[in-house]
Design a protein around this nucleic acid. Structure first.
Lengths: 197, 197
DNA sequence: ACTTTTCGGAACAGTCATGTTCCACTATGG
DNA sequence: CCATAGTGGAACATGACTGTTCCGAAAAGT
């Protein structure tokens, strides 16, 4: 009896549960990126579900935050993969990465702002060298070898600057109502100039 | 009777009270820049005073936040004045400003991160065009006229980027233990390249 | 149609930060 | 040395968010 249910339990949830889980996570991202101190009631309302339901899926607040963390990290990994950092000239690869990351929107801010998202699968914050991070650092070193990236720009510094510029681009849309595509092109242009050899 | 006390009440507080107030504000800056959700008890402990005393000076939490806001803004104005944005070539002036701002340390992060600091003297957040902001924008336009700053770089965008780079520099020291002077020189170099004509 | 899953709301207990009051203690200044 | 300003701590009220339980209603699947 219920062999399919057992299967689902082992592999994944029912489609309905998967949908509401997504709705909650998405709403949480939107709500928390606007206000990091938003309550679970706010998240529930934004998701269009009852507060009870939120607790059903994420017993504690930290569970929800952790879920957001993994969600965002997965998106980052996927975006990095799509950017194919190994192909073509380093500056062009950096452009592609920046573009892919930009598409992730507000999500990116959360990782910086809410340290709890790194309370992850037993990893020690800084120690958590995500694969995508390593890919980026490798790209920088490659570009420097090829002479297409500024050798003075430390690889960790470029990493920091990339994220800072993405942050800046989104801030620009929020603060000055700059259209998204304008903010993106400013961001790309600035990043290119800053990293050029 | 008590004419000197009346004077102090009209102009300023007693030196002891002024010292305590400063201690609380400074401790609050340090504490809150580390964790935006720190409680007033944490602030009191960091300041080395009782929680009661904090409430004596700042009846409500918002009063303390507002005080921090004005304090930081005053420092920003002073720093901007010291940078003498009107003198010399625009890029050099920008360098001076960046340097002065960098000296302000963690304080700068607070303004970005805690929106309540803008709950100010009746000004509507974005509308609050601080004098220092206007000076910076003027500098950018001057540099563009003189042909020393990239004409493609919108003045508001440069404003955003400057702050983002300062943020990045401090993040670099926190995240990678980069020495302050190294982070600063990376920041300056990147900013120069990004804004050059 | 019927059965199981999923959901929403109400009600409750627990925790924590806030803000207030009161009083005794200290140090500072005249 | 004495009056006053300034402080710290205890105790209390309050409100907000959290996390839990339970039950009836709605939706999904068959």
């Amino acid at each position: 009896m219920g062999s399919d249910r057992a299967d689902r339990a082992a592999t994944q949830e029912s489609t309905t549960r998967a949908r509401t889980r997504r709705a909650i996570i998405d709403a949480a991202v939107a709500t928390l990126s606007a206000d990091h101190t938003a309550s679970l009631a706010d998240v529930a309302e934004a998701a269009g579900v009852g507060r009870t339901t939120v607790h059903r899926y994420f017993p504690e607040r930290s569970d929800l935050l952790a879920a957001i963390g993994t969600d965002v990290r997965e998106r980052i990994e996927a975006a990095t993969a799509r950017a194919r950092l190994g192909e073509g000239p380093a500056p062009a690869a950096l452009d592609r990465l920046c573009l892919e990351f930009f598409e992730l929107g507000d999500r990116l801010m959360l990782l910086d702002d809410v340290p709890q998202f790194w309370a992850w699968s037993g990893l020690e914050e800084d120690e958590a060298q995500a694969p995508s991070d390593r890919e980026l650092l490798a790209l920088v070193r490659r570009g420097q070898r090829e002479g297409t990236l500024d050798p003075e720009v430390d690889d960790t510094w470029l990493h920091t600057v990339l994220w800072a510029m993405l942050y800046a681009a989104w801030e620009q849309t929020r603060e000055y109502d700059t259209p998204k595509h304008t903010a993106l092109s400013l961001c790309l242009r600035t990043l290119r100039k800053a990293t050029a050899a």
